[in-house]
Amino acid sequence: MIPPIRVQQLSKTFQDEGRGEVHAVRDVSFECAAGEIFGLLGANGAGKTTTLRILSTILKPTSGSASVMGHDVQAAPGEVRCRLGFSSATTALYPRLTARETIDFFARINGFPADKVKARVEHLIERFGIGDYANARVEKLSQGMKQKVALARTVAHDPPVLIFDEPTVGLDVLNAVEMQKVIAEFRAEGKAIIFSTHIMSEAEKLCDRIAIMHGGRIHACDTLAGLRAATGEHYLENIFIKSVTAASTPQ
């Protein structure tokens, strides 16, 4: 059976005026099962965002393949996008739509059955406690309120696959914890989740498996217990540093 997310030998190369050819992602492979949170852990520039942008069909891979729910990101990008919810610190909301209109809009454009959209919107408003400000424009909402609306819009079409790219960047502790709680709930609902972060504690707390990325490559990929056993380190921070250092040391 094909897992909800499958990435095989994925590579992405860019041309940069100053640096020439830049290998942002090199030969990356992983899978993510339903009901699993797969963590991509890496410093800035490690290749996490590029990988996730390929998965969300914003970018095309130079080589390798990736699929979401069995649909190849290059052959059927529309099918892929309708089956995933993508959220990142840089994905914003339309400021002049209300919270209700936002959820409604994203449910419709992502192919949720038109006759069920209204009920879905009301369900999400209730689930995320948006009711009090459902008819207020997004631009008037606080950061915490916006975060809830953003989560609701990400799952508006009830996608089986969710991608979170550093979703807690810029959030205060309370909102970050709330975000982690909701993501854990999504896992319990059986969704396949990719969670990209550079915050070790988040990855430790949330992820079922963690891939440590550096320089565009995955240097280690296992459960937290497996990583501990492989490196002999307890804390993820130390595990990360050990993996990255080993990768940087010339053979």
């Binding site: 914003i58 529309g78 309708c82």
Partner: peptide, 14 residues
């Protein structure tokens, strides 16, 4: 500028 471009591009429509 508003940051909604990526949101739209990762959504369903072609």
């Amino acid at each position: 500028e508003r940051g909604t471009w990526e949101t739209l591009m990762s959504s369903g429509p072609s």
